[in-house]
């Protein structure tokens, strides 16, 4: 499928930010083996298009198993979609891993590396010097609540700490876009709040387009400039909630004024999908 003009959400200035156009992805059905007469496929992503401008954060919410993680894997170059196009600042992403900083759902720490070495892994593989990456990682250890664990092995850390090391690793990666798959899931409320504000800060400061997959509607309302609601499989966009700027969102949250937006998102998610 070729991508011509008509884009779903908005058209930004040409090539800037993360642009996803008409992505359709299918998984082969189990049982369609060597001599399978019927090539069975299940469509997971159905003609998805979205744009994340620089310095903004788009959150994706949707029922469990609707293909949110699949979309991130496609953008990370790990899955080749049946059709569609994606690029960040004009650089194509499909089938070309290494173009975005991808944060998988699992913390995926290498058991044979210490906290510091795990944190700098992505930056090192992207070609940065280890010394420079270490300096940047050390500067962030406090903010991530990881001070004193530089030389700890992953199995010596709690689940929440592991997730923070993983998040630190993703944020140190130099790629021009950030894709986060439920990065705050295992965190306690306090650390979660802290790191949510940190994410708001770096999105504004680094100007990287950021795509966040989350289960948490409140989190989406606080962090995202735009919330995209996906339907159950095959996932398509059923609702787009545009949000005010970060300052106003914080205020709204404090006064509970984001209730109507939450209602609209819940309605779009449909009955029985209160994930």
């Amino acid at each position: 499928m070729t991508a011509d003009g008509e884009q779903h959400p908005t058209t930004n200035e040409a090539g800037a930010g993360l642009v996803v156009e008409h992505i359709t992805h299918r998984f082969p059905l189990p049982g369609a083996g060597l001599f399978g007469r019927h090539p069975g496929f299940r469509t997971v992503l159905d003609d998805l298009s979205l744009t994340v401008p620089p310095g903004s954060l788009t959150a994706i919410v949707g029922p469990s198993g609707c293909g949110k993680s699949t979309l991130l894997k496609v953008l990370a170059g790990l899955l080749i979609p049946a059709s569609g196009r994606a690029e960040v600042n004009g650089t194509p992403l499909i089938g070309r891993p290494g173009g975005v900083a991808y944060h998988p759902q699992q913390d995926a720490l290498l058991p044979w590396l210490t906290t510091l070495d795990n944190a700098t892994l992505g930056a090192e593989i992207a070609g940065q010097s280890r010394a420079e990456a270490r300096t940047r990682a050390r500067a962030l250890l406090d903010r991530f609540g990881l001070a004193g664990t530089e030389r700890a092995w992953p199995d010596e850390l709690s689940g929440g700490m592991r997730q923070r090391v993983s998040l630190l690793r993703s944020s140190l990666m130099p790629q021009p876009a950030l894709l986060l798959d439920e990065p705050f899931g295992a965190l306690d409320a306090l650390t979660r709040r802290q790191l949510q504000f940190w994410l708001l800060d770096i999105t504004a400061a680094e100007r990287r387009p950021t795509l966040l997959v989350t289960h948490d509607i409140e989190e989406a309302l606080l962090l995202a400039d735009r919330v995209i609601v996906l339907s159950p499989v095959p996932a398509g966009i059923v609702h787009i909630e545009d949000r005010p700027d970060a300052e106003l969102r914080r205020e709204q949250r404090e006064h509970g004024a984001d209730h109507p937006a939450a209602q609209r998102i819940l309605a779009a998610l449909g009955p029985g999908s209160g994930t």
Binding site: K73, A76, G77, L78, P97, G98, G99, V100, Y102, P104, Q106, A108, L110, L121, G122, I125, A126, M173
Partner: peptide
């Protein structure tokens, strides 16, 4: 698989 995918996504 998770670790292999992670490294691949990093461009390794």
């Amino acid at each position: 698989r998770t670790l292999v995918d992670l490294l691949t996504s990093m461009g390794a």
